[in-house]
């Protein structure tokens, strides 16, 4: 207990100290266990592997401001074509904010300002030529609280393909709906009641419906913002199993509050802290041997 407060105090005092070396790469990289852990600052680099092979989504020096609040600070990250990467970190660290940049959902917030470059398959997603509508058909999103449309189950899943014109006729639409529900692991349960309202399902079923809705438009990336936080353990387990299957066809970026979940489902983990991307590494390595003190503190439960 005493040790923690000591470290906390020194962390704070170090952060305030103006003459602290910042540009010294070696000293930053050399922050290991046992040394005092100080908060990250602009200019510090992320520990571990931000780059990856077969990068599909790249973020370069991304900053996000909500008015005067600097929410995401200089984040650089690459995500490959079919992997599951988990974004973890304490509350308010900016992981959801970063996630929402990837499909330009931050556009809906008036005070939000995004700088830097984010590309999808080489194309800058913030360029004028790219319509966010088309982007969101390629980068789908599943939200924290299941939010099916107040329509029938069929119409929920069919909505996306309908507006994007993915089905030429009714039979093609039926096929898409069936496939999506199947891939979301919901088909068996709702096969006979596709006309019933989507809101009549249980929490876990609703979330799977939302997943089916997302994959119905055949995206390349699925963003998941704490998808299981509102669900019971059984429903959570089902969705986690699903993620494994889905990762064969889609890149999945999942924001999660639960380190155990991250450990279960993801291949890579990115740890955010107060808007900075502190460390990115393979799941095993980050949980067994974190490089950065902050990461270690979070994983061991000292902070968060």
């Amino acid at each position: 207990m005493t040790k923690l407060t000591q470290k906390e105090d020194s962390a704070v005092s170090h952060a305030d100290a103006p003459d602290m070396q910042r540009s010294d790469r070696v000293s930053v990289a050399g922050e290991r266990r046992g040394d005092t852990a100080r908060a990250m600052e602009i200019g510090d680099t992320t520990v571990g592997n931000v780059r990856c092979a077969d990068a599909f989504v790249t973020a370069e020096k991304v900053n996000v401001y909500y008015g005067d609040n600097h929410a995401i600070k200089d984040v650089t990250l690459e995500i490959s074509r079919s992997e599951v990467i988990a974004l973890i970190g304490p509350s308010g660290c900016g992981k959801s904010t970063f996630l929402r940049c990837l499909n330009r959902m931050n556009d809906t917030i008036e005070s939000a300002r995004v700088t830097g470059r984010i590309t999808l398959d080489g194309q800058d997603i913030y360029s004028k030529e790219l319509d966010p509508v088309a982007l969101r058909a390629r980068v789908g999103m599943v939200f924290q609280k299941p939010n099916p449309f107040p329509k029938s189950i069929y119409d929920n899943v069919a909505y996306g393909p309908r507006i994007h014109g993915l089905a030429a006729d009714r039979s093609e639409l039926d096929a898409i709906v069936h496939t999506s529900l199947d891939r979301a692991g919901l088909l068996k349960e709702v096969k006979d009641r596709l006309d019933e309202p989507g809101t009549g399902l249980s929490g876990g079923q609703q979330q799977r419906l939302c997943i089916a809705r997302t994959i119905a438009v055949n995206p390349e990336v699925i963003l998941m913002d704490e998808p299981c936080s509102a669900l019971d353990p059984i429903a959570t387990a089902r969705i986690e199993d699903l993620m494994d299957e889905l990762s064969q066809n889609y890149a999945i970026v999942i924001v999660t509050h639960s380190m155990q979940q991250a450990a279960r489902v993801s291949k890579r983990v990115a740890y955010f802290h107060l808007g900075h991307l502190v460390e990115v590494d393979d799941t095993d390595r980050i949980f067994t041997n974190p490089q950065h003190k902050l990461t270690e503190d979070y994983i061991t439960g000292r902070i968060g």
Partner: peptide, 19 residues
């Protein structure tokens, strides 16, 4: 949440409003 869900699937602003 409904608006976000619709936007997330790729609906345009008009479609979110009218659908």
């Amino acid at each position: 949440s409904i608006r976000e869900a619709a936007l997330g699937v790729g609906a345009s602003k008009m479609q979110v409003v009218f659908h």
